[in-house]
Design a protein around this nucleic acid. Structure first.
Lengths: 126, 126
DNA sequence: CCTAGTGTATTACCTGCTTAGTACACATGG
DNA sequence: CCATGTGTACTAAGCAGGTAATACACTAGG
């Protein structure tokens, strides 16, 4: 796992977003163990407290759960996971439409640009 | 002009985004006078310095220009304006694709949701 | 002339984020 | 039994960025 942080947003939020993305994509499956706070902090070159903040907020959102003295794990509750995907998708669309709205272009003309960008991503992935 | 600010992002950035949006949409036409720093600040219930910061950054980006002791005005340079639209569109698509990428859905299935959201916006606009 | 309105500049304050340093309870493996 | 690794909690410090208060130079209009 590697993340490139921007300077604007708080690190703990970027970590959360990164993890949520992995949950949505299925990279992080329900029930799977998360890296420990200290491990992840070491890996990302950040402070363990910052990871802790990300984790504890995700725990509040029921996305992960922690049994005493054991590594945190991804939630297995289908409701929670579906809700996450739902909100993730919803936010993506809302933001996109909000950005696209002031532009004088039809949706049909945007499609090819989106497909182009999707293709670029797959290319860069390998 | 009215804006609803979120608490996370700096106000001056939100003001910039708001103004850029208006430029992109054509609400703010080239050469038109901007509201004065104090006026806009008063209207948005924020500090004049915050507006000043937004304005001066937009001036650096050549989106507005200011003759001494006169209200700032929207740029009339077609290159600058086209560049803005280009970047705006580009960013919208990049962000959207980045958000949509981890989701296991085809573009065809997303289209109706986008159109739905677009319709909602027009409805709420009036 | 002088008041009110421009833009501009400087300074100080304040909040939030990050880091660091400890400390504690508990479980596990050697 | 003990060393190590979990999660958790608390405090302190510092840093950076955003915001606010104030003052200044200039212009236009009454």
């Amino acid at each position: 796992m590697s993340v490139t942080f921007n300077k604007r947003d708080p690190i703990y939020l970027q970590v959360m977003t990164h993890l949520k993305k992995q949950i949505v994509s299925g990279e992080l499956k329900p029930g799977v163990e998360m890296p420990s706070r200290r491990q992840l902090a070491n890996q990302l070159k950040i402070n363990p407290n910052t990871v802790q903040r990300a984790y504890s907020e995700m725990e509040e959102q029921r996305l992960i759960f922690t049994e005493p003295n054991k590594p945190s794990r991804i939630s297995e509750d289908p409701n929670v996971l579906n809700q996450l995907k739902k909100e993730w998708l919803n936010q993506a669309i809302t933001r996109f439409v909000s950005a696209i709205d002031p532009i004088d272009m039809d949706l049909e003309d945007l499609m090819p640009m989106i497909e182009q960008e999707l293709a670029n991503r797959k290319k860069a992935q390998k």
